[in-house]
Nucleic acid binder design. Structure first.
Length: 799
RNA sequence: GCCGAGGUGGUGAAAUAGGUAGACACAAGGGACUUAAAAUCCCUCGGUUUUUUAAACCGUGCGGGUUCGAUUCCCGCCCUCGGUACCA
């Protein structure tokens, strides 16, 4: 295929843009500011894959479009450079993570330039640089001061392959989000961020965000608010009580037994001596299970009796206390009152272990017999004073009673857990805390930041005792306590990389600012106007960044509530309908195609394949269509000039209208097809008028920046096409004097008519009746109705 | 299981305040130009039928419904893809 000289053109303009500083943003001009942010990437050593191109290419086209529309667009790039892959690479190949990361960043930056991205590299951010992680550590201390960072011993998710703990959000289907290993539970003392403090605001503020509904929905579910009751049960023959959470206080009289999670702290205290061996065995067996085994839904229920009893506060009934792993330690209080007649799981358990079943809610107030399970709301029975009430009324009444008795009442419970941020790995920001025998955990004074990550480190897959690599670095670990001055130890863990990425959007506008994480006197660029990235971060990064924003707002440092005003998720590019993956061997290497067709063609094919939020299916042949299209543009821009006919202007202005609307909504696929129609029209004519050519180049510019710049220059323009104004369509010119009317009989198409736009309804009807084919269908029929849809169709209803 | 999104030609897809289904492109077939190829240009391209210069019937996952008219709205299914997973 012979082509326009794309290689020459693309390298020419990439060089020129950089030399002239075309992509550097005047940060003082904030009146038309538009902060357009792409989720930054992990610096990988390999070449850009399709996913990178698909995230960054169309997003860049959107940014360029906005720039031409008169916005001062700030589109920075940076690198989420801390993290496991570099460390694992170091273990395997002996290359220090700092070294491989620096090399990878270099590689990635080059590829982003080769794509033709309009990035302001003066604001690059690298989360692994001390200048950056100093402020990540500052963030930790800030949260610590606010009581939002705390340390606790808790059963946490442990990935044996990554040799580290994981946040709840990083466990998917019981597997490690990163390496797919089965996650187990371990009890460790770890640092947490108190994201639950913000659960309610994180939930309610979602309503105001211009985010995809799907994503908001996922966050809502993840936060998992449920309204119910807290109830304290006295333990029989023991000085103490156990609290439970339930959404069904109306079934309290139906509680016939009680279950604690195996990890519940009271289990070992209340278990009767004769049951202790069995209970201990069960706990041990549970601990050994993976998350997958524990949560598999069709597993038969197991459990053991502790020998202890609690007292139902309203009925006075004694309830045997069991432990069972169907109750999760980490939700609610880790204990439940079990109501077999109102809960499928309790019902199943009661059946298996022959526990009592008492019917307390019925559909209509009539008892069905005691061996059924009815989980819906209804009329309460067998419940003392509450008989005859609806479920809702009973809940309210019982809540009131529990409050009066001082043992419970209404309670709101969230599924969201506090964010576990400690990681037992080397390549991350050290947690700025010193552990002193005398003073306990002491935060490093902010003035002493950064706590530098030591260069000298021996990295191994395991250390036998499963602790952090840094713990083995004496020089790093040994420090004097900032409080008492005695010798103490540093915290050997580093922070989850999601902490680094939770605030990076704040750093970009002030990437080189030395005095603080960001310049609080120059915050006009924030928050982010448009954020673009994958949906896989819905309940991780996007939730964390929202939380950190709110915390910093409450610290008085930010004046806005949400980091990302608008959010867009690009879809996934598939191959033969399947997700691309190395293991399936169905990956497409962009490099071969860029070599053959150029970056402009490649970017445009990705945009043309389908809607940006849905992705598309890659086809090796399909890209030729786009390449032909760009070649055709190259050719028609060299056509001889001729004056524009009225019909030419109409098509031109219709194109402007459609393309503008499509790009506003990131509908790149239809925008391109509109331009194709214009191009096909010009191509047919074999001449082009000056205005059409000029406009065509402008419309093309955001989509195919290199070829557009070249054509713009060839057309005799001295300055960059991206300094030009986006064309505006003229409604009068876009309009046609004629219209095509569909002719129908009983809703079936029988012909069409081209008429003048000003035609009257009567004339149109008369004209339609003369139409040959239509008249045949009207023959011998009685016309009952004539439906005229202006500009569209006329439908005769006949009998 | 529950929640969400989606099922349209050989393929990627357009079009939904209900109004000519398949724009644009790929693939395929035929033709022009050429010694030949590439490139370019033109034509055909959802299915079936017929009296084939044209028309009729069917067709947007399946089955119903509302309507003059349904890819679009309503009800009931089936399938695919995401999210979630004993959440009390």
């Amino acid at each position: 295929m012979s082509s326009y000289p794309f290689k020459k053109i693309e390298s020419k303009w990439q060089k020129l843009w950089e030399e002239r500083g075309d992509h550097l943003v005047d940060m003082d001009a904030t009146e038309n500011k538009f902060y357009c942010l792409n989720m930054f990437g992990y610096p990988s050593g390999s070449q850009f894959h399709i996913g990178h191109w698909y995230q960054y290419g169309p997003a860049d086209s959107y940014a360029r479009f906005l720039k031409m529309r008169g916005y001062n667009v700030f589109q920075p790039q940076g690198f989420d450079a801390f993290g496991l892959p570099a460390e694992n690479y170091a273990i395997k190949h002996g290359v220090h993570p700092a070294e491989s990361t620096a090399k990878n960043i270099e590689n990635m930056r080059e590829q982003l330039k080769r794509m033709g991205g309009m990035y302001d590299w003066d604001h690059e951010v690298n989360t692994s640089s001390p200048e950056y992680y100093k402020w990540t550590q500052w963030l930790f201390l800030q949260l610590y001061e606010m009581g939002l960072a705390y340390q606790k011993e808790a059963p946490v998710n442990w990935c044996p392959s990554c040799v580290t703990v994981l946040a709840n959000e990083q466990v998917q289907d019981g597997l490690c989000e990163r390496c797919d290993s089965q996650v187990t539970k371990r009890s460790l003392k770890q640092w947490f961020f108190r994201i639950t403090e913000y659960a309610e605001e994180l939930l309610t503020r979602l309503d105001q965000l211009q985010w995809p509904e799907k994503t908001k929905h996922m966050q809502r579910n993840w936060i998992g608010k449920s309204i119910g009751s807290s109830i304290k049960f006295k333990i029989k023959e023991f000085d103490g009580e156990i609290e439970v959470f339930t959404t069904r206080a109306d079934t309290l009289y139906g509680a016939t037994y009680f279950v604690l999670a195996p990890e519940h702290h009271l289990v070992k205290i209340i278990t009767k001596p004769d049951r202790l061996a069995e209970v201990t065995d069960y706990i041990e067996a549970t601990r050994k299970k993976t998350e997958i085994e524990r949560t598999s839904i069709d597993r038969e229920k197991t459990g053991v009796f502790t020998g202890a009893y609690v007292i139902n506060p309203l009925s006075g009934r004694e309830l045997p206390v069991w432990i069972a792993d169907y109750v999760i330690a980490s939700y609610g209080t880790g204990a439940i009152m079990a109501v077999p007649s109102g809960d499928e799981r309790d019902f199943e358990f009661a059946r298996k272990f022959d526990l009592d079943i008492i019917e307390v809610v019925t559909p209509d107030g009539i008892e069905q017999g005691s061996n059924t399970c009815f989980t819906e709301y209804g009329i309460v029975v067998n419940s003392g004073d509450y008989n005859g009430m609806t479920s809702l009324a009973a809940q309210e009444a019982i809540n009131r009673k529990l409050s009066e008795m001082g043992i419970g009442g209404r309670k709101i419970q969230y599924k969201l857990h506090d964010w576990l941020i400690s990681r037992q790995r080397y390549w991350g920001a050290p947690i700025p805390v010193v552990h002193c025998d005398k003073c306990g955990a002491v935060p490093v004074p902010k003035k002493q930041l950064p706590v530098l990550l030591p260069d000298q480190i021996e990295l191994k897959q395991t250390y036998g005792d499963d602790i952090s690599p840094l713990a083995h670095n004496e020089e790093f670990m040994q420090v004097n306590c900032p409080k008492c001055g005695n010798s103490a130890q540093r915290d050997p863990d580093t922070m989850d990389t999601f902490v680094c990425s939770s605030w990076y959007y704040l750093r970009y506008p002030h990437a080189k600012y030395k005095d603080f994480a960001f310049d609080i006197n120059r915050m006009d660029w924030l928050p982010v106007d448009q954020y673009i990235g994958g949906v896989e971060h819905a309940t991780m990064h996007l939730l964390y960044a929202r939380f950190i924003t709110k915390a910093l707002r409450d610290a008085g440092l930010l004046k806005f509530d949400e980091p990302f005003t608008k959010l867009f998720h690009q879809g996934t590019i598939t191959k033969d309908g399947a997700k691309m993956s190395k293991s399936k061997g169905n990956t497409v290497s962009p490099d071969d195609f860029i070599e053959k067709y150029g970056a402009d063609t490649f970017r445009n094919y990705l945009m043309f394949m389908g809607p940006y939020d849905e992705g598309g299916d890659w086809n090796d042949k399909g890209i030729t269509g786009i390449h032909r299209f760009l070649n055709k543009i190259w050719r028609i821009c060299h056509f001889s000039e001729s004056p524009a006919a009225k019909s030419d202007l109409r098509i031109l202005h219709q194109t402007i209208k459609m393309v503008t609307g499509d790009l506003e909504n990131m509908k790149f696929n239809t925008a391109i097809s509109r331009i194709m129609e214009l191009v096909n029209h010009i191509n047919l004519k074999e001449t082009v008028d000056r205005q059409t050519r000029r406009t065509l180049i402008l419309l093309l510019a955001p989509l195919a920046p290199h070829i557009a710049e070249e054509l713009w220059q060839l057309a005799g323009n001295a300055q960059s096409v991206f300094r030009e104004k986006w064309p505006v369509y003229d409604p009068k010119l876009a309009e046609s004097e004629e219209m095509k009317i569909a002719l129908q009989v009983n809703g079936k198409l029988r012909g069409e008519l081209v008429v003048d736009k000003t035609i009257s309804k009567a004339d149109l009807t008369a004209l339609a009746k003369q139409h040959r084919n239509l008249s045949l269908h009207l023959q011998g029929k009685e016309i009952l109705r004539e439906i005229v849809v202006p500009g569209r169709l006329i439908n005769f209803v006949v009998r």
